[in-house]
């Protein structure tokens, strides 16, 4: 059976999601940020984490965005193959949702039309849209307004198969060390392993929007997530990069089959805001 969905419904959803994600942390992030205050051992670190708690409170109560960098809107669309969109163009409907959300939500317009000429589009479009066709007749929308302080510190490494898991660990630690205070720690680290050059980067991005309180179902990947978080939190970078334990809140790893000759590793870094929100239609 074909299920018809009016694209206006998509627009409305995305508008609301952009506004919500920029003012309220998702439950998993909220939990980890609260835990971080308790876990932090340095005085400066604790102080900064407490300021970030105050910041979240003000943001929600007064509807001031958590961070002024309200991001470039990254949208994942998982579309059931039995869905038929009607009453308009889906790409345009998604961008209209972003446009309305950023205008009506008093969010910052941070997108330039051309990477070299750099004229602001003044409505935060276009969004970065990733489509995936899945079975069924539902649509899952994930909105991730991505800030660039941390995006700029993200890396891709084309490792050799012989580098193995130790090579992967070294790559992630290098990226986090280099990011340091620039990426607004405590960070969330999304890691992609495998695939091709572009698939690997996308895996890392997807890793960031996963629930950060959960681990991978694959035993060695789960162990890798645990080991990496422990090692990262021994680097001493700490909240705000001013020293302390809580350099990262979580490490999420996604894997995919790859070529016999390769071991791509992508490290997508996010700050402590790590906005992500999911809705189903």
């Amino acid at each position: 059976m074909i299920r018809e969905i009016n694209v206006n419904e998509v627009t409305e959803c995305i508008k609301e999601m952009c506004i919500e994600a920029n003012h309220f942390l998702s439950n998993d992030m909220d939990l980890k940020m609260r835990e971080a205050v308790k876990e932090e051992e340095s005085i400066v670190g604790k102080q900064i984490l407490n300021q970030l708690q105050d910041n979240l409170k003000i943001a929600g109560e007064e509807m001031i965005p958590i961070c002024q960098d309200t991001g470039m809107a990254v949208i994942f669309m998982e579309i059931g193959q039995n869905v038929h969109f009607i009453e308009g163009d889906l790409n345009e409907a998604i961008n209209e949702g972003v446009r309305l959300g950023y205008q009506q939500g008093y969010l910052r317009k941070s997108v330039v039309k051309d990477p070299i000429e750099r004229e602001n589009t003044k409505d935060n479009t276009p969004a970065i849209i990733h489509y995936e066709i899945v079975s069924g007749d539902k649509v899952k929308i994930t909105v991730e307004p991505k800030g660039f302080g941390s995006e700029n510190m993200s890396r891709i490494f084309m490792l050799k198969p012989s580098d193995g898991i130790e090579g992967v660990k070294a790559a992630v630690i290098t990226a986090v060390k280099d990011a340091g205070p620039n990426a607004c720690p405590p960070m969330v680290i999304g890691v992609g392993i495998g695939g091709t050059f572009e698939k690997c980067a996308l895996l890392a991005k997807k890793a960031l929007v996963k629930d950060i309180t959960k681990h991978s179902d694959i035993a060695y990947v789960k162990q890798l997530e645990i080991d990496l978080l422990r090692e990262i939190n021994q680097l001493g970078i700490g909240p705000g990069g001013l020293g302390g334990k809580m350099t990262a809140l979580a490490v999420n790893v996604e894997t995919y089959p790859t070529h016999i000759a390769g071991l791509p590793v992508a490290v997508n870094i996010c700050c402590h805001v790590n906005r992500h929100i999911v809705k189903h239609i």
Binding site: Q51, N55, I58, I64, I66, G240
Partner: peptide, 13 residues
Amino acid sequence: FAAVGGAGALLSK
């Protein structure tokens, strides 16, 4: 100087 990154709501006050 550094201000706390990601505390934009707090700093606006």
